[in-house]
Amino acid sequence: MRASLTAEQQLLYLRRNPICEGRGDVRRGALVWQFTAQPTPASRTYAIRIDLDRDKALKVVVESPDLPALAQGRDLPHVYREEPIELCLYHPRHGEWQPWMRLDQTIVPWTFLWLFYFEDWLASGEWRGGGEHPEPDAQEETTRWLRRATARPRRQAF
């Protein structure tokens, strides 16, 4: 098992990659990175926040615009049923993201991809990005399972 990147290392990589130009910092081992993402030149510009807590639990949140308002009552695809809405960018059991991987090379490009498919979904009603859906009633279970899979017991980071 490879060694996890530290929050400071992740911060450095995020700062250096021009695709996620933004601002952020590390406090007590927890990383926050805020940036704007425009998946295509015709798309909206979205304000994104990545939280990586000291236990390597990861959250990607769209801070603006208001996604449920854009969806006009339709259920958003591939998000966690939480407030605020978090994006589900990878399958936790496939090891697609692990704490030794650079956020700017994984989570950031996947966020662009998610946003592209989101706007496409707004227009067509069809999610063309593929992926897996857990059973609806297993949702809560999955969310809890995810937390355990990606992190040691969670502590309050903020």
Binding site: P18, D75, E96, T106, W110, H133
Partner: peptide, 14 residues
């Protein structure tokens, strides 16, 4: 040229 490749992923969740 200066692109960051998009690695494979599986969108998850409902």
């Amino acid at each position: 040229a200066a692109a960051t490749p998009v690695p494979r992923n599986t969108f998850f969740g409902r």
